[in-house]
C-alpha cells in the first residue's frame, strides 16, 4: 500500500513537472531571469501546487494518523540556522546556473537521459560530499 502510494505520488509529481514545462531548464531559468525576457510560468506552477497542499495541511491537523502509516513523520517548522541559510543559498546558485532542481532533473531521466545525466550524477556527488563532510 505504502509503495503503491509513493509510486503514484512520484508519478503524478513527475507528470505535473513535465506538463507544466518545468522539465525545460531554459523555461525555469527564464523565470529567474528578471533582467531578461521574464517567463512567469513557474509562479503559476507554485501557485497551483499550493492549493491542494494548503487543503491537505488543514486535513492533516484534523486526523490522528495518515491513511497508510501509524503516525505522521514531519520535520520541525522552527529553528533557522546557518546550515539552512547557506544550503538554500548554494542550492539557488546551482538552480540558476543549471535551470534544474532535483525533481525535474530526475524526471528528465526519462526524457533526455544523456543531456541530464551529468547534472544528476554531479547532484548525487554533491549529496555524497555532504554526507562525508557532515559525519560527527
Amino acid at each position: 500500500m505504502r509503495i503503491i502510494l509513493a509510486l503514484l505520488s512520484g508519478s503524478l509529481f513527475g507528470a505535473g513537472l513535465v506538463l507544466s514545462g518545468m522539465a525545460d531548464p531554459m523555461r525555469v531559468r527564464a523565470f529567474l531571469d528578471l533582467l531578461g525576457p521574464w517567463d512567469p510560468t513557474l509562479a503559476f506552477v507554485m501557485g497551483g501546487a499550493m492549493i491542494p497542499m494548503a487543503l491537505a495541511w488543514m486535513v492533516q491537523k484534523r486526523i490522528e494518523r495518515p491513511i497508510a502509516d501509524q503516525q505522521f513523520n514531519l520535520p520541525e517548522t522552527r529553528g533557522i540556522d546557518g546550515k539552512l541559510a547557506l544550503g538554500a543559498i548554494l542550492f539557488g546558485i546551482g538552480w540558476g546556473i543549471g535551470g534544474l532542481c532535483p525533481g525535474p532533473a530526475l524526471a528528465s531521466l526519462a526524457l533526455a537521459p544523456a543531456a541530464v545525466a551529468p547534472f544528476v550524477l554531479a547532484m548525487l556527488g554533491g549529496m555524497a560530499l555532504h554526507r562525508v563532510t557532515s559525519r560527527p
Partner: peptide, 19 residues
Amino acid sequence: GIIGGLMIGVAAAIMLLGL
C-alpha cells in the same frame, strides 16, 4: 502551469495524508 502545479500539489498531498 496551473494544471501541472495542481498535479504536483495533489502528489504532495498523497505523500502527506497517505504516508
